[in-house]
Design a protein around this nucleic acid. Sequence first.
DNA 1: CACCCCTTTTGATCTCGATCAATGGTTTCG
DNA 2: CGAAACCATTGATCGAGATCAAAAGGGGTG
Lengths: 233, 233
Amino acid sequence: MKPSPEFVLQQLEPHTVRISTRKRQKLAISAESDETLYLIQTGVFLVRAAWRDDRHQILSLLYPGDCIRSSAIPPLDGTEIAAASENGEVWRLRWSIARGLFEGDPDLAHHVSDRLADQTARLALHNTIIAGLTGDERVAALMTEIALRVGKQTPAGIVFDMPLSRTDIAEHLALNADTVSRIVSRMRANGLIAVAGRNRLVCRSIEALAYECPIATTIRRMHETAPRRTLVA
Amino acid sequence: MKPSPEFVLQQLEPHTVRISTRKRQKLAISAESDETLYLIQTGVFLVRAAWRDDRHQILSLLYPGDCIRSSAIPPLDGTEIAAASENGEVWRLRWSIARGLFEGDPDLAHHVSDRLADQTARLALHNTIIAGLTGDERVAALMTEIALRVGKQTPAGIVFDMPLSRTDIAEHLALNADTVSRIVSRMRANGLIAVAGRNRLVCRSIEALAYECPIATTIRRMHETAPRRTLVA
DNA sequence: CACCCCTTTTGATCTCGATCAATGGTTTCG
DNA sequence: CGAAACCATTGATCGAGATCAAAAGGGGTG
């Protein structure tokens, strides 16, 4: 009988530093000599890079349950992990310590390894999205992902707080903020999403949203069944 | 005293199936129930996905020394690993077996884990390339990478066999094959690269090539020092 | 050698999204 | 409260690269 994933990672807790984050707070990405492992507990986080003058780029989104190891982030200028949600919680520990713990606990090692493989697959999927889809399809893909990850099912549809600004969305999808604004307006006009308050959106039908994006099937497969937390509440 | 990476992976050899590949030969990506780990020994390989009608896309390039685990590839339609070089060699083993071996050999586990993290970082870097660079810059980035990976230093510069066709390059860089052809012609005209036979190119100055690409520093850092093999010859 | 198939090259035109610009809304903070 | 930032929206214009089309290699095979 295998222990549940929640239980597996709970064992790391005594070795970690708990970090409560506020929106836009940054987490350090340490140098190779002292690699870091972050375990996302609550909230959405962004991996961001700057790559000339004042242009930024959001390489990936992190959700509760994700693990991120600093050597999985390329050594670009100005890379950082930043909180996108109002309140978040992350656990931090040194990779060298995690490695040691893995040796005594294969289940733990395998769980973290699987989470890191998920990250890799998501990055590859994101490549597909920005390389092969139109602007409208990209935004539909992102909305689907976020609705599945942070949304709550209600009678009116899936309600979720959008953790990304227009600029963030643009930086993640290789679009322009102006273009994103236009696309989102169009999605509202078409009834795909509706506004339900400050930064809060409703998606009446996830199927209708998925219909706008050619690879929605894959997105749903990867984000509907992922582990959502690393520690039981 | 740590064993060398080559020695570490050599221990896997008795548990693997050796595969000799010819150009365009495909490797199976098994379902989740029987996940596969491939160890690239010789040659360049492509991870390819098809995502509508007859459009393909090359998600990543694999070089000798790389490890690839099938769950790190997203469940898109028509994903496959294909040989890009004339002659290649890969070792295959079931992930469940690899997991078991990791438990008895932490160095092995750490080495594979590090290689997988490299893959992740490279995917993130590739996101940056296709999301933020112009067509010319993307091709310069790819040429730099391949020259560093498969090239040989000669008095005339770095000589390398280009494992990718124009179409492959286009599918990897989110460009059009026509556009790639134009860009490569321009690079030839500018003396950045020269033709030295069938599919063979010479890069006189890697510095000149790097100058064309804003993130060449990062590319060089990631591809110059990577392990090149998993087994001593 | 001639034929076929596939890749590459090059030209002409078109389009999606970037860029520039102006306006209004919202949060923050003295 | 009012000023300063920041964010979102919308219009007008522009351009990098896609698309379409046609020609030119370049090998393999009979």
